[in-house]
Design a protein around this nucleic acid. Structure first.
Lengths: 151, 151
DNA sequence: TATAATTGGTTTGAATTCGAGATAAAAAGG
DNA sequence: CCTTTTTATCTCGAATTCAAACCAATTATA
């Protein structure tokens, strides 16, 4: 139990954790992107569809908050998905500032098809971890990312 | 100890780990970006400078591999840093295809100033984890990201 | 109610990244 | 030597993202 300048030791460790976190996320995201590309979607598009698939109709700015995209980017993504006819906009009757987005039948069918496949692909990616390790990782990573006090 | 369809359980867990990993990395990167922005740099630029600072002169394509950027992006980043006079190119005398990049005096001074600050900022970000938790996180995340067999 | 501030969404412009060639040099094979 | 292949860098265009400016609608405040 040495107590020799714990701060300096920890700084190196923090930097290492930073790098490792980046690397892992980059690698995992690359795999996920690859998987999703097979359906002609990118990660942002899939994230939006997944949210609508699992949570139903949502105001656009709510979607943006959930998938961590700027409102200006939301317009872009929603436009693209609307053009592909996977979702559609719907004006809110109560608040005329608000626009909802919801899956079309076509979008719903797509997600019914590809969401389970995506889930399986994710499971494959993390197959190197046991159930317990996954749980531990989730706990630690959550804690690591929770220095920001929102959500 | 239920054994009811372990695969399904694990798929949900994997997806959750995926999301958590993304969230954490995004949050951490945001903080890092903020920190680095104070010096008029973005993350890619800082990563390049940091590499040169710690490892010395490097061929451009080597830098690209280390910081995970496409070679086409490297030209762009190196150009910008050269314009800011933080680094300079140097032709390799032996192999006329390769170009080295190295810190200028100005770039060296900058890094001597800001690298320790950055390191401290990283330590602050992960202050919510104990030393042991950081070590455990590093181990688990490394394992999670190691399904790709390179590096 | 009139006015100010906030909110939701879009438009616009810039930054960043990548992939697909183009070029040029070096290495390999005959 | 003379291909052929590989390697390193750069150019170009497309995709994606954000920030800033903006409009319209709503909410708060005087």
């Amino acid at each position: 139990m040495e107590k020799t300048d714990p701060k300096e030791l920890d700084e190196g460790l923090a930097l290492k954790l930073f790098v490792v976190l980046n690397r892992a996320q980059e690698a995992v995201q690359k795999q996920a992107t690859q998987d999703i590309k097979r359906y002609g979607l990118n990660l942002s598009e899939f994230a939006v569809l997944e949210l609508l698939y699992n949570k139903g109709e949502q105001p656009i700015q709510m979607i943006g908050k959930k998938v961590l995209l700027a409102s200006s980017s939301m317009t872009y993504v929603i436009d693209k998905l609307a053009k592909k006819e996977y979702l559609a906009r719907r004006a809110c009757p109560n608040d005329r500032r608000v626009t909802y987005a919801h899956l079309t039948d076509q979008g719903m069918e797509l997600m019914k098809d590809i969401f389970p496949q995506h889930q399986t692909a994710m499971a494959t990616i993390f197959a190197s971890l046991t159930k317990e390790e996954k749980e531990m990782a989730i706990t630690l990573i959550k804690k690591a990312g929770s220095f920001v006090d929102e959500q």
